[in-house]
Design a protein around this nucleic acid. Sequence first.
RNA 1: GCCCCCGUAGCUCAGGGGAUAGAGCACCGCCCUCCGAAGGCGGUGGCGCAGGUUCGAAUCCUGCCGGGGGCACCA
Length: 545
Amino acid sequence: MALRAAAVEGKLGDLGADQIPAEVVIDRPKNRDHGDYSTNIALVLAKPAGVAPRVIAELLVKALSESADIAKVEVAGPGFLNISIAAAAAGALCRTILSELGGYGTGDRLAGTRVNLEFISANPTGPLHLGHTRWAAVGDALGRVLTAVGAQVSREFYINDRGVQMDRFGESIMAAAHGLPAPADGYHGAYITELAHEIVELKPELLQLPESEQAVAFREEGYVRQLAHQQRVLDEFGTHFDVWFSERSLHSSTAVDAAFAKLREQGHVYEADGATWLRTTDFGDDKDRVLRKADGELTYFASDTAYYVDKRSRGFDICIYLLGADHHGYVGRLKATAACAGDDPERNVEVLIGQMVKIIEGGEELKLSKRAGTIITLEDIVERVGVDAARYTLIRYPVDTPMTMDVDLLTKRTNENPVFYVQYAHARISGVLRNAIEVGVSAELSGFDPALLTHEREGDLLGILGEFPRVVASAAELREPHRIARYLEELAGTYHRFYDACRVLPLGDEEVGPLNNARAVLCASTRQVLQNGLALLGVSAPERM
RNA sequence: GCCCCCGUAGCUCAGGGGAUAGAGCACCGCCCUCCGAAGGCGGUGGCGCAGGUUCGAAUCCUGCCGGGGGCACCA
């Protein structure tokens, strides 16, 4: 595709001269009649060149039609250039896919960029709920997508293991251990009693401790178990973290002091009313934030700030935060904090805000979890629909739109259910390829003749297979893993239509011919791309269903 | 009051300035003696409103209307 830029330069010398863009935007037209690819370059250049778009387009047509890979070039509408690729050139894509295998679709757009991806970051005081589950799926997929374009990604879970919530947690378990109801504003739910029983069984001596020590002891025991529980649940969900970062560790190390020193150095820290403040209003925040309260205690904001400074000191170029909609107020202060630390808030900090998730079953919204008492947990979801369906459907929507998970839909095995639609395509191809071996049709590249793939549906399939790398790149760039899912649905549909129209294996006692082989190669290529895409979502690609 | 998100088909939602705005469901009608019908094909039907930028706007900007969420020396 790059050949054209050179061709243009000489002929457009008329007026445009050297302001010809290095890259030309090439689209896949929605309408098949407009060729395999199209470009608006003539429309874009018309104004600066002072030449009618169609004149420029005609020049390009001449240059392009010299290529053997291009079957047809046409000027259409106001000056669009519609390009059709020769079958042989289009089919050669299968060679690329089947030699790159799992590497097909990856790129180097973010090579050398170090990304810190923080998500979920729940308190270790209870089970993970529906909102966390969305992040568990999306955050993990985003990590995979960023990695696929070359970024060095560290996934981090920030453990809020400090502060009054932890104390309430300890007190609640202690109360349960004594058979008492949870204190006001304490934690409820069956899991608290379970934790209490478990701890008492193992360490009955805790019950003899003085009350204040006892609450601390229960807090710590509960903390260890609840965190381990979250880790296990996430592990089973297929979401893995590189770093579990404890808020306490910020305070036991020199991180907080280091962060304060850095901020003072930049001149944005001041004292007022006995408290220590960060002047975030210097950078657009609506009010300054307290770092250390008048009573000497550090605020939660102080921890956040120290954590951010720590991330940057560990060498991350971009710190991505995935937060729930109820935290959108953080965006301003997070960016301002970065600015206070001397960073570029536009480049170094990115915040993705996730909207609410609802879950319905039998037409009714689910609100109760047996175990957690009130909230729907990650485990409740997995129990109902399984890991694949949960992950897929949570990733399938842009995070900034509220979404509803429909349990009944997700357990259906029809094309209403996008997870199964995509997985089914994979299983279907797997079945065809299994049969191919039996009847002696080869899906190997040796002897593959791409020029045989001339059917319209074959062309459609090749076209969409070729788009995969661009989809991955844009999903990474826009931090939108849902694009992968949408692409896979389109790919699956295109395959089903191909399958319907193009017989892969010979019928009855027909001889095996080169077209059978070529189509089998196309099937294998499609299966590979489905696998690669599903892998980016952390969803399995079953051989059979 | 200030801030964030969202208004696209009857429903659930896609759509990074491009040509005739897509998919699933729902409704009507088709396609299996043979590769997985867990599928495919055809029909019906839509960008909240008003301006602006542009050769071109669902997309970018402003205002309005309608819905959801958020404001802390809490965590």
